[in-house]
C-alpha cells in the first residue's frame, strides 16, 4: 500500500538514518536534484550503504540521474546490487528512455545473479514530451509498475508559472492518470511545495485523489500524516465495503445470483473495490 512517498536527499546521513520512521509508505532516496553535482559519487555510495546497513522496513525507491548525464549508469551499477524495490528514472520523455534504463538494469541483474526483472521502475514524467508519451512510457517495459508526475520541472518546460491552484498542471494530471490506468498501473502525484501550508496541501491531495491518483509524494515529513489521511479510506467507505462483502457472502449462502445493496446492484467491480478498501484499511490500521 502506497499512499505517500517521501523524498530524502541522498547525501545526508542524518536524514537517511531516520527516513524509515517518518510515517511515509515508501522512501525515495534521491541521487538527483537534492544532490550537488560535485557530490554525486558520495551520495550513491552513502545510499547504497544506507540500504544495506539501516534495516529499512519500508519500500525503497532510488531516484537516479537522467539518461544523458554522466551519472545514471554509475548510479545503477552502485545501487542495483543492493536490491532497492524500485528505481525512479528522471526526465523520462519517451518509451525508449525507459528501455535504455531497463536494459542497463538487466545487465547488472544478470551480472549480480539477481532474478531478471526483479527491479521495478517508476518513471518520473516531468516534461511536455513525457506527458504526451505517458501511455507509451507506461507500457514500454514490464518493469514499469507506476508513473510519477513531477510538476515543478514540467511547468518550467511549459514556460508557465507553478501555482497553488495548479490549473497549469490539470491537463498533465488527467493525462498521466488516464495513461497509467489504461496500462493497469498505479500513479503518483507531484509534491506540494509549501511546507507550512497544510490546508492547501489537503485540498491539493484531495483533488489529486478525486482525479484517480493512487497517492502523493512529499518533500516534507510534516506533510505525511495529512496525505496519508486523504488517501486512506474513510470510516464510511470501510463500512460500505464491509456491507458489500457481507451482502455477497449472504447471497452466496442463500444461493442467490443477483445481489443488491441499498437499492443498487452489486457487480464485480464494486466487490473488487470493496476488497481493496478493506485490505487498505487493514494495512493502515494503527499506522499514521
Amino acid at each position: 500500500m502506497r499512499r505517500t512517498m517521501l523524498f530524502f536527499p541522498g547525501n545526508s546521513p542524518n536524514m537517511l538514518l531516520n527516513a524509515g520512521y517518518l510515517g511515509s509508505d515508501s522512501l525515495i532516496l534521491d541521487l538527483e536534484d537534492a544532490v550537488a553535482i560535485t557530490e554525486k559519487d558520495s551520495a550513491r555510495i552513502l545510499v547504497r550503504n544506507a540500504i544495506t546497513g539501516l534495516e529499512y522496513e519500508k519500500e525503497i525507491i532510488v531516484r537516479i540521474n537522467p539518461v544523458g548525464t554522466p551519472f545514471w549508469e554509475k548510479d545503477l551499477e552502485t545501487i542495483i546490487p543492493v536490491k532497492p524495490h524500485m528505481i525512479m528514472p528522471t526526465k523520462v520523455g519517451t518509451a525508449e528512455d525507459v528501455r535504455i534504463v531497463s536494459a542497463k538494469i538487466a545487465e547488472i541483474e544478470e551480472a549480480c545473479g539477481m532474478e531478471a526483472g526483479s527491479t521495478k521502475l517508476i518513471p518520473l514524467i516531468e516534461t511536455a514530451l513525457g506527458i504526451e508519451n505517458a501511455y507509451q512510457i507506461a507500457t514500454a517495459d514490464s518493469r514499469v509498475c507506476a508513473l510519477f508526475l513531477g510538476g515543478e520541472d514540467l511547468t518550467a518546460d511549459l514556460r508557465c508559472k507553478r501555482t497553488k491552484e495548479g490549473k497549469e498542471i490539470f491537463y498533465a494530471r488527467t493525462r498521466i492518470v488516464m495513461a497509467a490506468r489504461a496500462a493497469g498501473i498505479d500513479v503518483y502525484d507531484t509534491p506540494w511545495t509549501d511546507v507550512e501550508d497544510f490546508d492547501g496541501l489537503v485540498k491539493d491531495a484531495e483533488f489529486a485523489k478525486s482525479l484517480g491518483f493512487t497517492g502523493k509524494s512529499s518533500i516534507s515529513p510534516r506533510h505525511i500524516p495529512y496525505i496519508n489521511k486523504v488517501f486512506s479510506p474513510t470510516e464510511e467507505e470501510i463500512q460500505y465495503a464491509q456491507d458489500v462483502i457481507d451482502c455477497i457472502e449472504r447471497a452466496k449462502a442463500e444461493g442467490k445470483g443477483v445481489v443488491s445493496l441499498r437499492g443498487k446492484m452489486i457487480d464485480a467491480p464494486i466487490v473488487a473495490r470493496a476488497v481493496q478498501t478493506l485490505e487498505a484499511a487493514r494495512q493502515i490500521k494503527g499506522g499514521k
Partner: peptide, 17 residues
Amino acid sequence: GAVDCTIRARVEVAALR
C-alpha cells in the same frame, strides 16, 4: 557520531577520489 555504514561510505569515497 556517524554510524559504521556512513563511515564506510565516506572513507570509500575519499579513497576513490
